[in-house]
Simulated scan of single mutants.
Amino acid sequence: MIDSTLWYLYGNDLDLAKQKLNMRILKCKTKDEKLKFINLLTYIGDYKGCSRWLEHIDGITEIAGQQSQFRILRHRKIHNPWQALIGSHDQNRLNITLKRHIEQGNPFSIDLVGGIGDQIENASILMASKKNIVNPSALLLRPTGENSNIVKQLLEYVPNIRIAGEGEGNAWHVTAPWFRFWLNLNKLEEPPQALLEDKSPAKATGGILACWRSKVDKNNKLSSYSRSIPFREIVANYQKLQKDPRNRNQIIYDISNYREEEEVIVKLNNPSVRLMRGKINNLLDTKQLMRNCSLIITVDTSLVHLAVASGRNVDLLLNKFPDERWQDLCEKGSSYAQHVIVHQQKEFHDWGEPLATIRQKIVAMDKQMLETN
């Protein structure tokens, strides 16, 4: 997972990471190459440095620069940061076109883009915002990308939702980021709300559902690494749980994606852990597994979005410089604020304290179960 040429970004020395990354940018010969590394500055918390570089090379005229600018605006809590992703001439045209479609009741499709978590998150926001839209029945949702069928299968269980069918694929459509720009421009966006209340809430089984790793993003290995717990720390965490005399070794259903040799190590040393990744084919399988668990623990993956969409509490392990979305999602009035318990790194790439807090919570749950029984 680690890019060896950028080794300094994967350690614990934040000052060194900033210094060497800026030197790397300085040595780049082309604008495109510079933008590739400028974007990484936001992942080590150097938003000011990123902004200075974008201004220096006029980077926001390029798509990569616009994406960096979006992250900066969101970090600064600027209203409607989606504006960074749309040119000024497109903003006016989009506003006029969307208003016309909605006022006339013409069906149009909102394309859910990004990973599974992104699409669930945006579906939650769009469904909550429908009440502010004239002729809301005109709004169709269309999952896209390699995980479109997985997301579509989940959304089919959501009441009062219209999913774009095969015959409507050629209808006028807009991406979710652009539609959220329009919602914010017209002050219509609402905080996300649960899509699917879990009709079979977890009983006090003591089962734990855990995901310690995010999916590897080949285009952004640093993001994947920063959001995931290194394997050696996963092993150490399991060892501490096994050795703690206060812990009865509750069954942990681990849906992390391990290599074959890593699976052998986990199975050999942790009899209370059940590796479930290979038994999950879709989100409904995961949702069913959640019903057997009293505690849900995950890093920044689609599991946290699925849990919130299902009205379940979830313990979220966040890195020091997480995706800026979490500033918005966890604000008061949001279903995320209601259901997400955040355990965030205080030091760069140091999971020690968040994992210690999680272990304490597992022990406390075990104690509560003993007292209840």
Rank of each mutant, 00 (worst) to 15 (best):
T144P: 00
L209E: 14
K199Y: 08
A236Q: 12
W182F: 12
E189L: 08
I208H: 03
L154P: 06
N219C: 07
I150H: 01
G165K: 04
I161P: 02
A138F: 02
F179A: 10
N135H: 06
R232T: 13
S137T: 07
N184D: 12
K218G: 14
E189R: 11
T144C: 08
L222C: 13
F181L: 04
A202D: 06
A176L: 01
N219P: 05
R232N: 14
E146K: 12
A176R: 00
N237M: 11
I234W: 00
A202R: 10
W182G: 04
P192I: 09
Q193R: 11
N132P: 01
S137E: 11
P191S: 12
S214H: 10
Q153P: 00
K199M: 14
A138W: 00
T205G: 13
L140C: 04
N160W: 00
E166I: 12
G145S: 03
G207Y: 12
F231V: 01
W178T: 09
R142T: 08
E197L: 15
V174S: 06
V158K: 09
V151G: 03
V235N: 06
N149R: 10
S228A: 03
P177D: 02
V158I: 11
G207P: 07
V158C: 06
A236C: 02
E233W: 08
K240H: 08
A171K: 08
L140H: 08
P230F: 05
R213I: 12
N219M: 10
N219Y: 12
T144I: 00
E197I: 14
S228E: 11
L188H: 03
E189G: 05
L141I: 08
F231K: 06
L141W: 01
V235D: 04
D217N: 14
A138E: 02
L154Q: 05
I208L: 06
K215N: 15
Y225M: 02
A210N: 07
S214N: 14
F181E: 05
Q239F: 01
S148F: 02
L222Y: 04
N220S: 09
S214G: 15
T205H: 06
G165Y: 06
V235S: 09
